[in-house]
Simulated assay, not measured.
Amino acid sequence: MKSKILILIGILAFYSCQNKNESSNIVKTIIQDTLSKTVGGTANLNDAPPRDDKAVELIRTQLNILLEKDLPAMTKADRFFYYQAFDLNNDSKNEYFVGFSNSYFCGSGGCSGYILNNDGSLINRFSVTEFPILIATSSTENFSDLIIQSGNEFHLIKMKNGKYPSNPSVQEIWKGVRPKESAKVLDITDKKFEKYSF
């Protein structure tokens, strides 16, 4: 909180030293108002609006459909997701990996997640998945193979008849070490991913 106040004071000081023109006066007024609300304890600096882009809205809509029966049992804290876009089939359109990190979707074996097409339609649902998901350099049926950790082992997940298998833990075990050249998606433990509500 102190650092936010110091930043606001610094910005106010910077603009007070500038030439007095209309735009700097507007900025100065906004900064002064925000500063007074922050000092007075009436500003809510933690409640920034979520990014409202097409992908987030598409995913929200699809999750509300896919989880329609689950929604009554879920708490507000359960209704958050992470996503990352990645073009799995080299068609210049991203697919969306959707993951969760709460107790409703995660257990001792890992978490559930989804892969959605660019139009929001479902490609796959996963269970017992540990993030991140690795994108292999190989492909099957024109879709990248995936390497998913489940049960402390890496499993090779290949597309079959237009779907990836939903339970990685029963798929072929990846032989060898974790491939360093693979792209990672949903690396939610090492990177700061924004959470979105649905």
Rank of each mutant, 00 (worst) to 15 (best):
N46L: 06
N46K: 12
N46Y: 05
D47F: 12
D47L: 08
D47I: 06
D47A: 15
D47V: 08
D47Y: 13
D47W: 09
A48M: 14
A48L: 14
A48G: 13
A48S: 15
A48T: 14
P49L: 13
P50Q: 12
P50H: 11
R51M: 14
R51E: 15
R51P: 08
R51N: 13
D52S: 09
D52G: 04
D52V: 07
D52A: 10
D53T: 03
D53L: 04
D53N: 14
D53K: 00
D53Y: 10
D53S: 06
D53C: 09
D53F: 01
K54P: 01
K54D: 09
K54C: 05
K54R: 04
K54G: 07
K54A: 10
K54L: 07
K54V: 10
K54Q: 04
A55F: 00
A55R: 04
A55M: 06
A55T: 08
A55G: 02
A55Y: 05
A55S: 10
V56D: 01
V56H: 02
V56Q: 05
V56E: 02
E57H: 13
E57F: 07
E57N: 15
L58K: 13
L58E: 13
L58Y: 12
L58T: 15
L58M: 15
L58H: 12
I59G: 02
I59V: 07
I59N: 00
I59K: 00
R60T: 15
R60P: 10
R60L: 11
T61Q: 11
T61C: 08
T61G: 10
Q62R: 08
Q62H: 04
Q62S: 12
Q62Y: 02
Q62I: 00
L63P: 05
L63I: 11
L63H: 04
L63C: 09
L63E: 03
N64Y: 06
N64C: 08
N64G: 06
I65R: 07
I65Q: 11
I65D: 09
I65W: 02
I65E: 10
I65L: 10
I65N: 12
I65C: 05
I65F: 11
L66M: 09
L67H: 00
L67E: 00
L67Y: 01
L67W: 01
L67D: 00
E68Q: 11
E68N: 05
E68A: 11
E68P: 01
E68C: 03
E68Y: 06
E68W: 02
K69T: 13
K69S: 12
K69F: 11
K69M: 05
K69W: 06
K69R: 10
K69D: 14
D70S: 08
D70L: 02
D70Q: 12
D70Y: 04
D70H: 06
L71E: 05
P72W: 02
P72L: 04
P72E: 02
P72H: 01
A73P: 01
A73G: 04
A73C: 09
M74P: 03
M74T: 01
M74K: 03
M74Q: 04
M74H: 03
M74F: 09
M74S: 03
M74Y: 02
T75R: 05
T75M: 07
T75L: 04
T75C: 02
T75P: 02
